[in-house]
Amino acid sequence: MRAAGREKDSTHDGVLSRLYQQVTELHEARFRMDYDLAKGLERYRAWLGDQTEAPAAPVAAGPDSEGAGAGLDAAEDEQATVILTAVSVEAVMPDTFPASGTVRAEWSADRAVVELYSEHYRALVRLAALLLRDTPTAEEVVQDSFIAMHESWLRLKDTEKALAYLRQVVVNRSRSVLRHRTVVDKNLQKPAPDMPSAEHGAFVSLERSAVVAALRDLPERQREAIVLRYYADLSEAEIATAMGISRGAVKSHTARGMSSLRAALEEE
């Protein structure tokens, strides 16, 4: 019985593997390094829009089924349709045939992710990079935040609230990463517990700035308050929301942080 199950799993894995290979090979030309992501986003937005306006429309071929400048010939398109249909479309895109009543919220969550990604992803990654001094981890933290935002969209339902939520999650997760890093580094008996390890090479360019280097030595709350105030240009109220503290505490952390930062820079 177990052997039969394993055999079934193995066949399933094989099919999935071939599917992935087929899809990527079929569209190899579209996914080269010079692939225009902006056009991909446009296509995806258009597809989301089409789904909002015409929920009953067939979706197996995704955004390219509208022929919106995808650059595929008819045979390729047909093949793509067959492949995507074969992997159970309703399982892959739950917002395509959802239970009634959840339709719009689900679509809006997808759309919100796309819109907020286009406008704020880069700035959020940079914000997280200033807190973490590590670009790959910063990207992961921001991606986690978008996924959390997507899950919470039913409650948020508003891009302003969603952006505030994204910032809050970025700050909280960055704090968790730094605390975890501190524990790991303590166990490894490294001299500077808050320093990223050698594989975090992407932060080297950030460290070239004396200000960013001095930020490293500040307590985490002061560092967060300063980065949110002077990099993200947020108001005290927005910083208070992002950090989950009062406005008075924001003032205090910012003032102390700036004072320590000035002292550190003047010492150099």
Binding site: L19, V23, G62, P63
Partner: peptide, 17 residues
């Protein structure tokens, strides 16, 4: 959705690989 399908579909829509 199983990860290979999720990734394949996302790449299909949004690329690059």
């Amino acid at each position: 959705v199983p990860w290979p399908q999720a990734l394949a579909l996302s790449v299909y829509w949004l690329g690059p690989k």
